[in-house]
Every structure is written in structure tokens, then in C-alpha cells.
Design a protein around this nucleic acid. Structure first.
Lengths: 209, 209, 209, 209
DNA sequence: GATGAATGAGACTTCATTCAT
DNA sequence: GATGAATGAAGTCTCATTCAT
């Protein structure tokens, strides 16, 4: 009883959000139903409508939850960032470590990635999700800035956005491929860009004389 | 009756696919239902299960149809490609003209774009869609190669893929933003990359003296 | 097989309407639910939405059905009308026989009456019921005209409407009373009016010299 | 604290009854729900079950409340009754002024009327409402008697009941019509009756020489 | 006394699919 | 071959009421 006690209601609400987030991760938006969420959280069906105005509301919360989980995972990875070797290749790997993770062996990891991109496309048809998404985007970029600063790389915001876009584009493409090794694919593509961009990534002072 | 006549059945099947594709475009996957498709095609409800094994089957065909439509639109744009001015900026605009279109005024155009990215993420959960997607990807790249060749730009396959990835990543990001001007956003980002990549894209010696 | 065969679907639809009409009669509007109707008609739940656009649609049909039943009952009573004795009292009884029935012993008969007046008030909040109600009103008045003509009474339209209004008002009032004998109450009130009106009811030529 | 202070509980109970009465007026019986009443009264949901045995109990109180409001409105109209001109037409208008009001422009006024007749029919299915209704009926007739006495018209109880029945019947009928002008309709019908009944209503000798 | 929390029952409706014709 | 008819399963959501505090 040393930690601040979360009121029971809030705990249940959170349990529902997390159940919904899990389902979202595992089965996409179609898997998030009142029934499935309630069952997963081991709570009565009616609790899903008691704690949330509508299913869309619950889904929005689940989306936010997954976004925050995504960020939390990345944040934990930032801890290990300092004192890395320099060089373009290392910068690329650093970025991939943060955005994608060390490898994609676990299904869970792949699901998290898929869900991330489903989140983007969902925003197109569901404007109510955009606020969440924008907030998550800001945090992501702060986090990446922090990571690059820690590793003493001087990468500008714009460069960073561009590199992230390349990763996103690469991931997106590979979602449509059979047995794609997402990380390797993104890595190749990223290196390809960075190869040329490199001077500005790791040695900013050399780029424009 | 010696000429190639599409049998009535085949015509109907196609009508259903196109109706489904329209719905997919306008309302996403959730909008494609047996009923809605039949109504849109002005055909009996049962024809949707008669001509297709299941709804998923019909959806797969609709996805393919929309992919082909996407390609057709781009193909028609390739016609106007020749004799363009050179320079990185023009290359970027060329690419955007092909991938996104001259502008995004019409809702229809925005829908086509959204649908394109929904297609990618859908593949992640529905492996049966990947074959189609791979085939479409190949054709897209052939088409882009052709376009660049026509405009006498010497861009390598890998560079092209990378630039497409940037566009895709940029588009994806902007789907999650309010009132995003998709084309301008992609353009800025692309120019940002190309600016540096430029040497290898169009006559490097002209960019940096 | 000598009668025209009603297609099965139409028979089922009618069965649902009648089940709904029964429930409407017995329990009022609140008693008409998808489930209750389906159960009563011994048909699957989904048939109620298959045959009717919505519950409101089904209710409207049930209302019409009950209205027609009401008219049918009255019509059958008209058969016995001819060769009645004259006199104001007899005119009143004739009207009551038609509108209310010979007595109110049976619950069924009371329900029919209650339902009739619920129909009126329902129209106030549900404009979609008014068309039906207007149509029924016209038929009622034709029927009453016919009845009075048969009994060789020369009552004018306006007089008739007025007398019907008295009956309706009396019935309405007695619905709010305990153990009210609806018919007797209406009779007293009607006689009270007719007493004075009488000359114009049964001896039109005497009323205005 | 010696004066008659309504305890807080009683005030709240009354607030709930009035909220329910408002809803009853505006949306009919279907609009009276625990939730809607609590929200309208700006009181906790549970207070609706705390202060009333059941929803039906609360509804009964709301019905009574609306009945009393109806009477209060009429009572206030009685104030202006004295020194009216005589004649059948004026008697009719007096009655209509009391029962219906000067005009039906406001929605609020129409709602009050609809609710009045819904009250009658509700009694048919809900015997627990009849006590209230009987009490209201007595008060209405006292009030009408008073009004007629004030205006120095010598109308007998039975005549009055009969005239009220005509008004009620006319109103009921017009609820089922499109765009009905309730007051005009009732007026025409009433005049039609009174025209003949007149002798006993106001100075018979003036009507028929 | 009062109420926030909670929920079982049931409301209306959609839909993929089956099947007899 | 084609389709109108039909339905079980499941969807979202409302609501009267109970109960612990």
C-alpha cells in the first residue's frame, strides 16, 4: 500500500482500455468489440458502455494507449543510447533500434509495428483520432531528438523527419510483401539514403562549406 | 458471335468488383458489404455470394481493381511526361505528379490516396492480399522507370524506391494530421532529400559547382 | 385450392402484422417489440426486420391493421341495421352499436376500444401515423353514412361528426374512471345531446320550419 | 425554523416530479426515464429511485403534476371571465378559452394539450393513474362551474359535461389530422352543437323567436 | 440519508451465408 | 445458372434497478 491507490473504477476503466489496446494490436480495429473487450478484461459486457460513451470512444482511448506503449518501448531503448560509435551506419542502426527494435522475431513486435501504421491510416477516415495522433507525433520527435542528442549526433529536425519518413515508407511497403524482413528492408533503404546524406548526419559542419 | 464476347456472367462479376472497389475507395473496408455492393451494382444480393466464394474474396478482387485503377491513372499521366525541364525540383514534381496527381482538390483524389495506404496496411493482416500487392508494386516500378526514362532522367531503381518510400512515408504521416496539404508536405520532404541526393539524381555537377 | 393463393412470404408478413396488432391491442404500443411479435407469430426474430424496414414501420402496419379490424367489426354490424324503429333513442343506440358494440363484457372488446383512442393520441407524437388515421377516418364516416341511410334516417354529415365527437369524448373521459361502464356512460351523454338535437336527427323536416 | 420549511428532501422530490412532468409534456411517456429525469433536474441518477418506489411511481406523480398545472393555467384564465357578453357564441369561446387557451401558436401549448389526452388513454392501461385522473376531473368541473357562474351563465352540470365531451372528442380527432387547427375545429363543432342546444345554454328565448 | 458504481436483461438492427426453387 | 427468401449470430446501446459505502 505504499503506492498511490488508484480508485477501483479507474483501474477497471484502464483494464478495459488495455484489453481493447491488446485486441487492437493483435487483430486490428475489427477485433475491438464491446464483447471481445469485456471478455478479455474479464468484466461484464455493460461495463464497456458504462465507462465509455461509445465504442468509438473506447477505441480512441485504445489507440492512445498503444501509442503511449509504443513510446514507452522506445523511451526504454533510449536509455542504452549513449556512447555509441559514430558513422552513418551506426546512426541508421540507432534510428532503427528506436523505431523498430533490435529484431522482429517476436510476433508481438510485428503486431506493434502493424498497429502503428494502421493507426495512421485509421486517422484518414476517423478524424476524431487525429488529435491523439498529433500528440503522439510530437512526443516521438522529442524522443528522437533526445536520443540523437544523447549520442552526440547533431541531426536537424528536418533531417530527422525525413529519415523517419523513409523508415515509415519502407515499413509500409514491406507490409505488403511476403515474409519481409522489415528491419533489414528498412535498413537497406535507409542506408541508401544516408549514404549520401551521411555528411550532414554525422558531420554537419562539412556539408555546406 | 465470333468476336470475344464477355459472357453475361463475367460482365456481372466485373460490375460487382467495380461496385465493391468504389465503396472501398469511398468508405474503406468497412463499407464493403454484400448488401452495399449489390445495391451499388444494381444486382441481386445473392449474386455477391454466387460469383464470389466469400466477402473476403470479393474484397480481394476489389483491392486489385483499385490497384489497377491507380496504375491506370498514373499511366495516363506518364503520357505527358516527355520534354520536361531538368533539375531536381522538376524530378520531384514529376514523381509527385505521377504518385499523387497534380493537386488534391477533389475528394475523389484524396480517397484514392487514402485507399492506397489502407491497401498496404490491410496486407499486414490479410496475407491473401499480398500477391495482388506485390504484382501491383512491380507494375508501379516499371511504370516509374518508364516515366523517368521518357523524361531522360537517369535515376537508378534503388534511388527510385527510396524516393517512393519518402513520398509514402510523408503521405502516411500527413494522414494523421489535421488539414494536411498532402502534396505540399510530400514535396517539401522530398525536395529536402533530393536536395542532397540530387547529385546522383540529376546531373550532380549542376547542383554543386 | 380454389381461392387465390397468397404467396408464403406475404402470408408471413401478414402473420407478423397481425401478431403486432394483437399485441398493440392487448398491451398498447409498449408491448410491440421485435421479440414479442416474432414469438407471438412463431417466427424467427430476424423475420421482423426482414419483412419491415424498422419497428416503426411494423407498428404503423399494425395500427392500420387494427383500424381495419375495427372497421370490419363495424361493417358486420351494419348488416343488421335495416328496419330499426325510429326515435332519438334508437338512433343513439344504433350509433353506439356501431361505434362501441352491443356491450363491453369481453376484455377483448374493451381492448379494442382503448386501442382506438391510443391510436389517436399516438398520431400526435408520430406524424407518420396520420396518413393511416386519416384514411381510416374517411372509411368510418362512409360506413356511418351508409348505416344511417340503411336505417332510413336522414342525418347530415356534420351532425354525424358531432355525435361521433360526443361518443369519443365520453369514451375518453370514461377511460380515466374506475369501473366505468363505457357504453352506458356514452349513451347517457349522447341521449342528453340528442334529446335536444333530436328533431334534426330523426325528423329533419321539423327542425327548421 | 418555526415557519413551514420544506425539508431539502421534499424540495428535491418535487424537483424530480417537475422534471419528469416537463419531459412527459415534451416527449410523452417514452421520454420519462430515470436518466432523463435526473439530468433535467440536475440531480443524481440514484435520487430518482431513492425518492420514488419505481419509475411508474414517479410517472404517476408527474402525471398528477401536469394535471395540476393544467388546472392552474385554466384557473388563471378564469380570472378574466367576468362581464363577458352573452350569447351562445360567447359561451363557446369562453369554454374554449378555458379548455384550450386563446390560441395554439406556441408549441408549448400544443404539447400541454397532447399530454392531456395522453393522460386519458394512459389511464386505460395503468389503473394506478385513475385516482389522480378522477380527482383532476372533479376539480376541472368545479372550475368550469365557477367560471360559468362568474359569467352569469346558467348552464347545468350535465350540459357542461356534454360540451366538454364535444371539445375532447373534437381535439382527439384533430390529433390524427395533418396541420389541424385544433381550436377552430373544436369551435366549429361546438358551435354546431350549441346552436341547437343553445336554448338551454343561454336564454333560449333569444335564439328562437 | 444519499449516491456513485455497477450490471443483467433486453432493446433495435446488420449481416454473411445458406438453401429451395 | 441465378436468385428471392430466410435466419442465426452478433453487433451497439439503453435502462431499471440494486447495492456498498
Amino acid at each position: 500500500m505504499s503506492t498511490a491507490v488508484t480508485p477501483k473504477g479507474e483501474r477497471r476503466r484502464q483494464a478495459l482500455v488495455e484489453a481493447a489496446a491488446d485486441l487492437l494490436l493483435e487483430g486490428g480495429f475489427d477485433a475491438v468489440r464491446h464483447r471481445s473487450v469485456a471478455t478479455r478484461a474479464d468484466l461484464p459486457l455493460a461495463s464497456t458502455t458504462y465507462y465509455f460513451e461509445s465504442l468509438d470512444d473506447l477505441i480512441a482511448k485504445a489507440v492512445e494507449c498503444n501509442g503511449n506503449r509504443d513510446l514507452a518501448v522506445m523511451r526504454s531503448r533510449v536509455e542504452d543510447v549513449t556512447h555509441r560509435p559514430r558513422g552513418p551506419e551506426s546512426t541508421v542502426d540507432l534510428l532503427l533500434d528506436l523505431l523498430i527494435g533490435p529484431s522482429l522475431i517476436s510476433v508481438d513486435c510485428r503486431d506493434r509495428l502493424i498497429s502503428r501504421y494502421e493507426r495512421f491510416t485509421a486517422c484518414a477516415r476517423h478524424p476524431e483520432l487525429r488529435d491523439v495522433q498529433v500528440r503522439l507525433g510530437v512526443q516521438l520527435h522529442d524522443l528522437l531528438s533526445e536520443a540523437l542528442r544523447r549520442s552526440e549526433r547533431d541531426v536537424r529536425q528536418e533531417q530527422m523527419r525525413r529519415l523517419v519518413a523513409v523508415v515509415d515508407g519502407a515499413m509500409l511497403t514491406s507490409l505488403g510483401e511476403h515474409d519481409a524482413d522489415l528491419r533489414t528492408l528498412a535498413r537497406t533503404m535507409l542506408l541508401d539514403v544516408v549514404d549520401i546524406v551521411a555528411p550532414s548526419v554525422d558531420k554537419p559542419d562539412h556539408i555546406r562549406p
